[in-house]
Computed example of a mutant assay.
Amino acid sequence: MTQDIALDQDWVPSACTLPTAEQPLRVAEFDALFADAVQALERPDRTRLRLELAVSPEHAARAAELSARENGCCSFFAFTLTVADGGLALEVAVPPEQVEVLDALQARARMAAGTKRSA
């Protein structure tokens, strides 16, 4: 339980404008997406995280909708959803000063998804 609390604190940056009461709900939404859809994680560089998702219209819609809402309160995130060559991927990029937030996001995704592959 202590580990989850620490990750929650790292996950929500001070730049976030989402009301404090809504932040745990948003974290839970990301955790559910990670658990349901993430098949693999890659970290192409320190400011980018690539999540390979199970291909389905539902996962694509959830990822797009959640990314749009998250960008509304944490505008430093850049989300790119790609559907190509039979695959579905969500890439998350942050400026260098927000790398710790991306680190926490990667840790949550890895923990929630139990992914087999991470680079």
Rank of each mutant, 00 (worst) to 15 (best):
A109H: 00
R43Q: 09
V92E: 03
G72S: 10
R46T: 14
A84R: 12
E58C: 05
P44W: 06
S56A: 15
Q98M: 15
D36G: 15
V38N: 06
S14H: 14
A107R: 04
E70S: 15
V27W: 03
C16N: 14
A89P: 10
R50G: 05
R43A: 10
V83H: 05
D45R: 13
A107I: 04
A68F: 05
S118W: 09
L81A: 03
E65R: 15
V94M: 00
P13I: 02
A112E: 09
V55S: 02
A104I: 01
S118Y: 11
E100V: 13
T20M: 07
A28I: 03
G114K: 10
T2P: 10
A78G: 10
M111W: 09
R46K: 15
D31S: 10
V92G: 02
E42C: 15
F79D: 01
L18N: 08
A93D: 07
R62A: 14
A63Q: 13
E70K: 04
E91N: 13
T115R: 08
C16D: 12
E22Y: 03
L18M: 08
E29V: 03
F76S: 01
L102G: 02
E70R: 07
D36H: 14
M1I: 13
S56R: 13
A104D: 01
A6I: 14
Q98P: 01
L81T: 02
F34A: 10
R110L: 15
A35R: 08
L7H: 07
D103H: 09
V27L: 12
A32N: 09
A113Y: 11
A119C: 06
T82E: 05
L49C: 04
S14I: 11
R110C: 10
P44Y: 06
E52L: 12
A37L: 11
L66G: 03
R48T: 09
L53K: 07
C16K: 08
A68M: 05
P19R: 05
R108F: 01
F34W: 08
A107F: 05
A61L: 12
R110V: 08
A37K: 07
D103Y: 03
L41C: 13
A6P: 00
A63W: 09
A6M: 14
P44A: 13
V27D: 06
A35L: 06
P13H: 12
E100C: 10
A40T: 10
F77L: 04
V94A: 05
E91H: 03
R108L: 11
A37D: 11
A89V: 01
P19C: 08
L88Q: 03
L66V: 06
A61E: 15
S118M: 14
V83N: 07
V94I: 01
A35P: 00
V101Q: 01
R62C: 14
D31W: 08
R43L: 04
P57G: 05
L49R: 08
P13L: 11
R48D: 02
T2N: 09
Q23Y: 03
F30A: 06
A28P: 00
V27H: 09
L66W: 02
D31F: 01
A6S: 13
